[in-house]
Design a protein around this nucleic acid. Structure first.
Lengths: 375, 375
DNA sequence: CTGAAAGCGCTTACAG
DNA sequence: CTGAAAGCGCTTACAG
């Protein structure tokens, strides 16, 4: 008995079905079945080389494997196969946390990955540009491919991605050569949402924007402007208010606007860059006694869990985040299996449709309201 | 040139810093530096065997490794070291999604794991008991240890965990021999919360419970009952309402109660089993025109993102979910590094303190309200 | 100071 | 039908 297995023997009080202190290897199974490791490997993998194994031997092998609770060692298998059956997911951890947006997409990724028997490894980055090297260092055999969640490299700082690992991005801010990007029809979604507000009779429609310089927020602004123009509503620049992508920033932006515009006519409806911002916006209105949707309508974007966790629930634009995650996994696996072929078959970027999620936070316009300056 | 590297050469249009179509190996670096693989391994790992390497050789090795963008292959390393530098996180995917509770704990796990340079692999299970075998099959070298998130095996169905992989659980429903469980002071939290409601003047306090048969919900009920008793408030059984752990179930439970008890005095405050339930509860009140906190106070539990994403924000019991995730990683790593030793040093279960998160959803009691039956 | 060699546990041509 | 052998890319005693 080696020193190693002695240590292991002490690891835990003898469990019920503890078949041994050390996992069984192929050689162990071969020995128990009175055959060679090769035959065991063939049988257990249903491999279909020229070689065949007799039913008798096969039966003995299966029995021995079950008896020893044999599980092929993943590291050894990965080394021999040059595939580790795992995909990576890289996302930026903002303010120490992965957010709702991540959670939704990740749910799609993990469902699809599990279906395809792939492991999913999550990498939390601090900053896309600064962690570009880490991204590259992660390509050391621990994953077969990687999904980049909303990467925001500028054109000037293209990521240094190795050529021998396939990448797929979701909501990338820029397109990278060789990396398929999965997007959604954000401009159309924003357009439809604002049109919806207009159909409810709203005329003075504010937009709290996302962070500037990013593709997503810009598309939402374009949809907003186009919907106003098509409805022949005037664009009023005080109604285009920079916010960000968090509840905090939404609250601050709306609060600030109310303070600066005391006495001015309030917006009848606010289209927010995402659901989190909408929540902050509703809070800011609440602070000055305005109720949603009675006094003012508010709408979000993304339709994350947050949209359904607010009272009233948010009218929002449903991005197919789960589907986007699942799609990313499928594209990635196609490339992993056929690095040369899968490339041309796919349009780049892939754009998935969005749809309006109509809920309670949008009502009909109330009479013109203003905040009394003294308040 | 082998067939394999030919394929790889076509994988992507020539990238800027593409150092080669195939990742460099230790042998490649050794060749470039004019030395042996062993010396390269020693230098790159700062290994401290008896062996030494001269500064000149060392310099050549470092230069060659950088030039070739050498990254040690993880699978090969894992095979040689019997450690793959990864931990697993197993959680049940309910209704196709990982929830807020998962997200919070996972944020703690990934932060700590990243700090310790460990990969984090997420396994989505459908059912603890049915997937018990899958859990075992995952222990095939792909992870060095595993964290079980809120496992709910009954005593009758103890999981079949292999002895050679360490496990740590968080909020386990039962304790397993050899698995440290990390908990939080849920009963005390519930007690403090109800005490808080009482201090605000509430007397008729309802509790919407979590799923029956689980430790967490039971502890919350005990805290609730004890707080009532200590304040010499009568326990009224219609005020102990079974719900569940989702917004849906919270809404349904509250709605149902209101329908069944039309004309009865309403609760002044509702203590909900978690934040999601509280959101559902607020919605149900909203449907019959009752406002929170003006007409009725509502409090949650857990203090997940949901608690801060509702308007009004929820008074809740803050569970240190992030800290629990981080703690789990640390305990697990201690066991991985010292399977024999780390065991006794640690109390089991570990109980972390909770604290009250006071927000806007709890106010002072309004006069006695009843719903008109006709409504 | 340096390197040849064995071994980690698999897979896969290849030769009986 | 069956198995000995080489190889995947590392690490680590061990012998110069």
């Amino acid at each position: 008995m080696t020193n190693r297995s002695q240590n292991r023997a002490h690891q835990r009080p003898p469990a019920a079905a503890c078949a041994g202190a050390r996992p069984a290897t192929l050689a162990d199974v071969a020995r128990a079945a009175g055959t060679s490791a090769m035959s065991v490997s063939m049988v257990l993998n249903n491999a279909c080389t020229t070689s065949q194994v007799s039913p008798r031997t096969r039966k003995r092998i299966v029995a021995a494997a079950a008896q020893l609770q044999y599980r092929p060692n993943l590291a050894a298998r990965a080394l021999a196969n040059r595939r580790i059956q795992a995909i990576g997911v890289a996302a930026v951890v903002e303010g120490g946390e992965l957010n709702h947006y991540f959670l939704e997409i990740f749910n799609g990724i993990i469902a699809s990955a599990t279906l395809h028997r792939q492991n999913t490894t999550v990498f939390g980055l601090h900053d896309w540009v600064r962690d570009s090297i880490r991204l590259r260092d992660l390509c050391d055999g621990r994953i077969d491919g990687m999904i980049l969640l909303a990467p925001t490299f500028g054109c000037e700082a293209a990521p240094n991605l190795p050529a021998y690992v396939p990448f797929v991005s979701i909501h990338a801010n820029h397109l990278f050569p060789g990396v398929v990007n999965i997007e959604s029809a954000e401009e159309e979604g924003a357009y439809a949402l604002v049109q919806h507000l207009i159909a409810h009779g709203h005329r003075r429609i504010m937009h709290l924007t996302g962070p500037m310089g990013l593709t997503g927020p810009e598309r939402r602004i374009r949809g907003y402007l186009r919907a106003l123009a098509d409805a022949r509503l005037p664009f009023e620049s005080p109604f285009l208010v920079p916010a960000g992508f968090t509840t905090e920033l939404g609250r601050t932006a709306m609060r600030g606007w109310l303070a600066r515009h005391a006495g001015d006519p309030l917006p009848q409806a606010v289209f927010c860059a995402n659901d989190a911002v909408a929540v902050g916006c509703i809070e800011a209105f609440g602070e000055v006694g305005l109720r949603v949707p009675d006094d003012v309508s508010v709408a979000g974007f993304d339709d994350t869990l947050a949209a359904r966790s607010v009272v009233p629930q948010l009218t929002s634009v449903r991005q197919p985040l789960r589907a986007m995650g699942a799609k990313a996994v499928e594209l990635l696996l196609a490339r992993i299996h056929d690095p040369a072929g899968a490339r041309e078959a796919v349009p780049d970027p892939i754009v998935l449709p969005v749809e309006l999620a109509v809920r309670a936070s949008v009502g009909t316009p109330s009479r013109v309201r203003r905040l009394v300056p003294s308040r």
